[in-house]
């Protein structure tokens, strides 16, 4: 009888813990808003117009080992899917293209799918080679490509993290930023 109660107690504890963690992760995920001027797969947990006061938003950044973006200095966008809605997969080539970002400094990084560790795979605005028409085009591929090329190395599935630093100190809203498209090309 006692053993039965003990097993039941442990089971309930386990079940409660799972319910709590899953519901918290779901709530954190739900606080993100699709924020691009032209639609697309980019999401932001930070509006850019007011300081972060929502604990779910704060948890999103800190639980994945990132400092939350600061008001007036930074905007942070994340994408786990391409324009067609398929998960980003390092065995495929992707082209990220669109108008050149207007931020004073920006940083595009590939993060591990579980997002727990920042990957040292990135490109910044100062490294970008602009297209003749003024737009930008970045290729993610395991094979060397001409122009702006990011090698996903040993990542399998990944997430794109785009950090913009407008530099003006003004509270630019995340919703008005035009972000690049993520187009999938060939997969191996």
């Amino acid at each position: 009888m006692r053993l039965g109660s003990l097993i039941k107690g442990v089971g309930v504890l386990f079940l409660g813990g799972i319910i709590g963690i899953v519901s918290a992760q779901w709530s954190v995920e739900k606080t993100a808003t699709a924020m691009t001027a032209g639609g697309g797969p980019w999401k932001s947990w930070f509006s850019g117009t007011t300081s972060i006061r929502n604990p779910y938003v704060n948890a999103h950044y800190l639980m994945f080992g990132r400092l939350p973006p600061t008001l007036g200095q930074e905007l942070l966008f994340e994408a786990r899917y391409d324009d067609e809605g398929a998960a980003l997969d390092a065995s495929c080539d992707y082209v990220i293209e669109g108008p050149r970002l207007t931020a004073r400094w920006w940083h595009l990084a590939l993060a591990d799918e579980d997002n727990s560790q920042p990957a040292a795979i990135s490109l910044t605005s100062s490294q970008l080679i602009g297209e003749p028409d003024g737009s930008m085009r970045i290729t993610i591929s395991r094979q060397p490509k001409a122009g702006n090329w990011i090698n996903p190395r040993d990542l399998s599935r990944f997430e794109l993290v785009l950090k913009l630093r407008p530099g003006s100190g003004l509270n630019a809203g995340a919703a008005v930023v035009t972000l690049p498209h993520i187009r999938r090309e060939a997969c191996t």
């Binding site: 309930v12 079940l15 409660g16 813990g17 319910i19 709590g20 963690i21 519901s23 918290a24 709530s27």
Partner: peptide
Amino acid sequence: VALVIGAVTHLSYV
């Protein structure tokens, strides 16, 4: 009991 534990875990996580 499971729901109460879940609520406590949820708040702790956040």
